[in-house]
Lab assay of single mutants.
Amino acid sequence: MQRVNMIMAESPGLITICLLGYLLSAECTVFLDHENANKILNRPKRYNSGKLEEFVQGNLERECMEEKCSFEEAREVFENTERTTEFWKQYVDGDQCESNPCLNGGSCKDDINSYECWCPFGFEGKNCELDVTCNIKNGRCEQFCKNSADNKVVCSCTEGYRLAENQKSCEPAVPFPCGRVSVSQTSKLTRAETVFPDVDYVNSTEAETILDNITQSTQSFNDFTRVVGGEDAKPGQFPWQVVLNGKVDAFCGGSIVNEKWIVTAAHCVETGVKITVVAGEHNIEETEHTEQKRNVIRIIPHHNYNAAINKYNHDIALLELDEPLVLNSYVTPICIADKEYTNIFLKFGSGYVSGWGRVFHKGRSALVLQYLRVPLVDRATCLRSTKFTIYNNMFCAGFHEGGRDSCQGDSGGPHVTEVEGTSFLTGIISWGEECAMKGKYGIYTKVSRYVNWIKEKTKLT
């Protein structure tokens, strides 16, 4: 034993070699072989497995989906700052455009905790909710729209109204504003409101030439003092309507412009014939205590009207009353817009006519005020429907199939267009061939041609 100890002390290297040989010859039971080890760690190889990531292109799944990435790591994937920024906006807080917040056709661009709407022409605001041009839906104005110097929408209202708090709607500024039905039992019968379409306001006024200088022999019209197929109006439903009495009662109609003036057809009036105007009328054979009678003290036909040349060209006249009318729910003026808007309103496509005229061709006159909704007829169809001249200051309205029309005794009465609950004068009943005849239409004086003249002559002093 002493000898062994001496050998170990003198030859430590020998001992180490012996131990190493023993270990190498022993069977290893701690580690699995290569094949079995792979069965336990069965993990798919990654895209760049075996390579240094710093030297390969980034992978979106590896960089940002398996674990949260930084902007720089995302930049490695896209290799483009702009594309990385677009991805980053949604990656950080989701897609803010998912709810489609942009209105009126706006395009949404996502941002971090926010979004941006790219608005089409005519709109602005956070969600493109603000109209900035009158060309689109009248700028959301209830009545009139004008573009300011910086191309912003400025709404306005006709006389007797003021802008509401929203700067879009119009509200009454006087007790009985024009064009409004205020009798409670008839307010439910107000005709369907007309909503502004998209309009090209630059070209809204037709490029028409008034044929002022045409000389033409007097034409022989049949029954051209021209509501057939209409309905009984309720008291106060058309408070701007008046009836004219002269040699015979209810020979023509008219509309209240203001307390002192009536507008009617020029062919209705004769110099030297006494005319009485009755406002607030409903049943011409009954006294309903809503009527107001006034005498006409002055007749002003349009300066281009000449019955000797043509009885229905420039067929418009103004009547001055001896005493002002007292405005109330049964006696209310009709609204008159400017030339541009009167023309736009007419193009809405349908209007209402009213009167006490004959209820059928050569038949009896109506006792109760009649009204009828009539569609506008395109000019080409209008011209083809008659052998008589249709001037540019006239328009056609009615039904091709016949059966409904204005008729004798309705002449001078109103053709009105309702705009968001307020009625505007767009025409004056003038003439036609018979009444409600198939293929024939009622012919009306186009008020847009005469609004400046009306307003100039009827100013209240």
Rank of each mutant, 00 (worst) to 15 (best):
R3P: 13
V4Y: 06
V4L: 12
N5E: 12
I7D: 06
I7E: 13
A9I: 10
E10P: 13
E10Q: 09
S11Y: 08
P12L: 14
G13D: 07
I17R: 03
I17N: 02
C18V: 13
Y22W: 15
L24W: 13
A26F: 10
V30D: 11
F31P: 03
A37R: 02
I40P: 13
P44Q: 10
G50K: 06
K51G: 06
K51L: 09
L52E: 04
E66K: 06
E67M: 00
C69Y: 00
C69I: 00
F71Y: 08
F71E: 04
E72D: 12
E73R: 01
E76N: 01
E79Q: 15
N80C: 04
R83H: 12
K89Y: 07
K89E: 06
Y91S: 05
C97T: 03
C97F: 02
E98W: 10
N100T: 14
C102T: 02
C102E: 02
C102M: 01
G106L: 03
G106Y: 03
S107A: 12
K109A: 10
K109R: 10
D111N: 11
I112N: 12
I112Y: 09
N113S: 07
S114T: 14
S114W: 07
E116Q: 13
C117A: 02
C117Q: 02
W118S: 14
C119Q: 03
P120L: 12
P120D: 13
P120H: 08
E124C: 05
E124Q: 11
K126Q: 13
N127A: 06
E129G: 07
E129V: 04
E129L: 03
E129D: 11
D131E: 14
T133F: 07
N135T: 14
K137C: 05
K137P: 07
R140Q: 13
R140L: 14
C141M: 00
E142K: 09
E142I: 05
E142Y: 05
F144Q: 03
C145W: 03
C145Q: 03
C145E: 03
K146F: 12
K146L: 11
K146Q: 13
K146T: 15
N147Q: 15
N147A: 13
D150L: 11
N151Q: 10
C155M: 01
C157E: 01
G160D: 10
L163E: 03
L163N: 03
E165F: 08
E165I: 09
E165R: 11
E165T: 15
N166E: 04
N166V: 02
S169K: 08
E171M: 10
P172F: 05
P175D: 06
R180I: 04
V181G: 11
V181L: 09
S182K: 06
V183Y: 11
V183Q: 11
Q185C: 07
Q185L: 10
L189T: 10
L189K: 12
L189R: 12
R191W: 09
E193C: 06
V195K: 10
V195D: 15
F196T: 10
F196M: 10
P197M: 13
P197W: 07
D198V: 12
D200E: 09
V202S: 12
V202Q: 15
A207N: 15
E208C: 08
T209I: 10
I210P: 08
L211I: 15
L211A: 15
L211K: 10
I214N: 09
Q216L: 12
Q216M: 12
T218Y: 09
S220T: 11
F221P: 15
F221C: 08
F221I: 13
N222H: 06
D223I: 10
R226I: 11
G229S: 14
G230H: 10
G230M: 08
E231W: 10
A233P: 08
A233H: 06
P235K: 09
F238L: 07
F238D: 01
F238N: 03
Q241C: 05
V242N: 00
V243P: 01
L244E: 01
N245A: 07
V248M: 07
V248N: 14
F251M: 08
S255K: 00
I256L: 04
V257F: 02
V257P: 00
K260N: 07
K260L: 09
V263I: 12
A265E: 00
V269L: 12
E270H: 07
G272R: 11
V273W: 13
I275V: 10
V277F: 00
G280H: 02
G280F: 02
G280R: 02
H282S: 11
E285A: 08
T287G: 11
T287H: 05
E288I: 06
E288R: 06
E288P: 06
H289W: 11
T290W: 11
I300T: 04
I300S: 03
H302C: 02
N306G: 04
A307F: 08
A308N: 11
A308Y: 10
K311A: 08
Y312C: 04
N313C: 05
I316D: 00
A317R: 01
A317N: 00
E320K: 04
E320L: 04
L321D: 00
L321Y: 00
E323H: 10
L325M: 04
V326W: 07
L327S: 04
N328V: 00
Y330M: 08
V331W: 00
T332M: 06
P333T: 03
I334Y: 00
I334A: 04
K339P: 15
Y341G: 04
Y341E: 06
T342V: 03
N343I: 04
N343P: 03
I344A: 15
I344N: 10
F345T: 01
K347C: 03
F348N: 15
F348I: 09
G349N: 07
G349C: 03
G351I: 01
V353E: 01
G355Q: 12
R358N: 09
F360E: 15
G363R: 07
R364N: 15
R364V: 11
S365N: 15
L367E: 14
L367M: 05
L369Q: 07
L369R: 15
Q370L: 03
L376V: 07
D378Y: 03
L383C: 07
R384Y: 06
S385I: 10
N393A: 05
M394D: 01
C396E: 01
A397T: 05
H400V: 11
E401C: 05
E401R: 13
G403T: 15
G403Q: 13
R404H: 15
S406Q: 14
C407Y: 05
C407T: 04
Q408E: 14
G409I: 10
D410W: 15
S411K: 15
G412K: 03
V416H: 05
V419R: 05
E420S: 14
S423F: 15
F424W: 15
L425H: 02
T426D: 00
G427A: 02
G427P: 00
I428P: 01
I428R: 01
I429N: 15
I429A: 15
G432A: 11
E434H: 14
C435N: 04
A436Y: 08
A436G: 13
K438D: 15
K440T: 15
K440Q: 15
Y441D: 00
I443G: 03
I443T: 06
Y444G: 03
Y444P: 01
T445E: 03
K446C: 05
S448M: 03
R449S: 15
Y450P: 01
V451L: 04
V451Q: 04
N452R: 09
N452Y: 07
K455Q: 08
T458D: 00
